[in-house]
Every structure is written in C-alpha cells, then in structure tokens.
Nucleic acid binder design. Structure first.
Lengths: 217, 217
DNA sequence: GTCTATATAGCGATAGAC
DNA sequence: GTCTATCGCTATATAGAC
C-alpha cells in the first residue's frame, strides 16, 4: 500500500487548517473595527489565542493575513445575479438579489466593513486579479440588464447606476450599523431587516417600472 | 483709546488662522486615503508645507487634528431638510435634499470618506456632543416625516429607513468613488452626477408614492 | 512663534532554542 | 511545529536653542 503524500483534503482539519481559520476569523473582527494600520499582529494573536510568532509563522506577514481575509470575503459574494440570464424575470432576480445582499449585511457585517474601508482608501491592497474579476462580472451584468431593457422587460435605467443603488442601500446596514444603532436607540432585529428589505425592493424596483415578487424570497 | 485684547475676528486671517486652515485641509486629504492610524503627522506637515513640530504646536496632538477635521466636516452638512416644516411639500424637500447630498459627495468626497470610516470603526472619536446633535436632528426629522404621512402628503414608509436610504445611496458616490471609477473605466462627470441624482430621486420618491420636482433644483 | 534634535514607546519581523 | 527574546525601524510628542 503506497503512501499518498500531498493529500490535501478530507480527514485533515488538522491543527494547521484549524489555526489558519482561527487567525482569519480573529483578524476579520479586528480589521473591521480598527482598519488595516490600526490592527496589530499582537491583537490578532490574542483573539486567536496563539502566540504572535505562530501567527506570523502561518502567514509570514500582516499583509499576508489581510490578503487572505480579503479573498475569503470575496468568496462569500456569490448571488442569484451571477447566473441570471435574459430568460429570467428582472423583477424576480432583483427582488431576490436585494434580499440576498441584505442577508449578507446582517450575517457578515465585518466582511462588508473591511471591504468598504479597502475601497474608501482607494483599493491599495486589492489584487489586480480581484479587480479584473469584479470588472468582468460587472460588465456582463450591465450587458444582461441592457438586454432586459431592449426586450421591454423593464424600464430604461442606467444599469451601472442601478447596481450602485442596490449595493449602497443594502451594504449600508452592515457598514453603518454603529450609526443606525445609535440613532434608532436599539440594534436591528431580523424583523427589522426584513421590513427594510421589503421597502428597498419596492423602491428600487419602482425605479425600474417593476413590482417586487415577495413570494419567492 | 483702550486696547481690545481678545478681539477674535475681522482683520485677522493672520498666520495663525491661515496655518490652521492649511493643516486641516492637508489632514483631510491624508486621513481620507490612509485612515486615522495610517496617517502620520509628518505626512500632514509635508502636505501643509510646514515643519512637523509646527503642526503639533497648533494642535498639540494627532488626535486633536482629527477632532478638528471631524467637526469641520459636520459643519458642512447643513441641508434643506434642517428647516423643512409640515407646511412644505415632501416631494420638493426630498428632491432637493437628494440633489444636495449628491452635490456634497461630488464636492467634498474626502469629508464623506473620513466620516464613513469613523462610523464603520464604531465612532471611536466622535464626541458625545456630536452624537447628541445627530440624534436630535434625526428624531425631529423622523417626526416631521411622520406628520407628512399623517396628513396624507406621502405614503406610509418608515421614516428611519427612508433617511438611511437617502444617505446610503448618495454618499456611496463619494465613499466608493475608487470602485465606481474602476468599474466604469472613467471618473464621474458633473453630467453623470446629475443623471444619477435624477434617477435616485425618481426611485426613492416613487417608494414614497411621490414624483420628483426637478424644476426646483 | 519657529525649528532642530531627541526621548520614549510600540510596531513588524526574525533568529534560534526547544 | 512552537515559542522566547530581540533586532531594527518608525511613530508621536517634547525640550530647548533661536
């Protein structure tokens, strides 16, 4: 029976993978509250309950940790819009997409915050590869929306401006949660998120001459 | 003729006031790109064309500079919504407010970015005084919108959610300008801002059962 | 008021014993 | 693989000459 050397999955949540995960989770929380430069490797190590040297053993540099966190974040962002086709109904796709984005804001607020700060600062650490993927995705979705418009399935709105509208209004609930909680006097509940999602879907779809399909979400 | 000592205005754009302004402007630019901890006093001094020690002479500490920048930012944010009353037409007020917010995003993007990062990080440096003022303003505007609703001047939407919607969708053009430019392939022009403002006004007001009044902006 | 020179502290990263 | 000890650097802030 020959020994398989580089077996890279299955039966191996070994210490290596477990520690990597602990570091990424700890780092996400601290990067979100303190920003990149405001975060120290020491803080990450304490939250991950590991010595600082071990953290740098796994990732080699603080920038390496941050890069891993960023790519982890992008992997979260699959949505129903990715695979939508010209055959689909825009009212259904947009309704579902808005609810998905709101659910992401509610479930992974730190991911949204880290990404928001990265963009506000001018995307200094976002790899060319990640930018390229984002651009490709964006262009293809703009093209799809233009097809829907040409088919008369929705009003003629600028697809770019429409996508920015959806992103901004949904991500706001993650990124600005501190302000929202402060102004409301209490944190948003799941029900609050649902009401806000319904309102946003109604308003945004109205801007496209559409009516949301709440029965599918 | 007696000497007046603490004369604090008029005929005095002296070196003192001029240097203070130069420091605040330089600091705003650098805080916006680098964040609070990512900014060094040395960088601020270079952009302001002053020796580092002089910068610290005027403000005493980096945190002092940041505080001054924050309060400068809040002073920019007067709007037509501040003095709106129940007699006004919500369609006019909201249309104008959305255009004002977009104009602020276009004209003072750095101010928006600094404030956004401050909130994302959990408002660590925002004074209790500033928070209090924001809350007072928010509550009174929520009350006003509720009055409009009770008078049948607009549909019954949650006023808090409506205000978050306006803020998020307009501030996005300042805060995420790097992503917007990257995805579009070119920066937003004044005309692009105007088109986006019209679209946002149409969509957001539609969500309230209103039609924008473009002739007044 | 202005600027040079420096005190003090904390950072990321590494070397080397275990 | 793990951890202690430490290097080299850069930051904020100040002391004191001009």
């Amino acid at each position: 029976m020959s020994r398989v050397q580089n077996e890279n999955s299955e039966t191996k949540p070994s210490i290596r993978e477990s520690n990597r995960t602990k570091i990424i989770e700890a780092a996400s929380k601290i990067f979100a509250s303190n920003g990149y430069t405001g975060t120290t490797v020491q803080q990450i190590a304490e939250h991950a309950e590991l010595p600082k040297a071990n953290v740098l053993y796994y990732f080699k540099s603080k920038e390496g940790i941050y890069g891993a966190v960023l790519s982890e974040i992008l992997s979260l962002w699959n949505s129903c819009l990715d695979d939508a086709t010209v055959e689909d109904e825009p009212s259904e796709i947009f309704t579902r997409y808005i609810f998905e984005k709101m659910e992401l804001s509610r479930t992974y607020p730190d991911a949204s915050k880290i990404f928001a700060m990265e963009i506000i600062k001018g995307m200094p650490y976002l790899s060319e590869d990640m930018k390229h993927n984002m651009s490709e995705w964006f262009e293809s979705r703009v093209a799809l929306i233009n097809e829907w418009i040409n088919l008369g399935k929705m009003q003629a709105v600028d697809p770019q401006v429409l996508l920015f509208h959806i992103w901004s209004s949904t991500q706001h609930y993650a990124d600005f949660s501190a302000q929202i909680t402060s102004l409301r006097g209490e944190a948003m509940t799941v029900e609050d998120y649902d009401k806000a999602s319904r309102y946003l879907a109604t308003s945004i779809l109205a801007g496209c001459g559409l009516t949301p399909k709440f029965d599918i979400v």
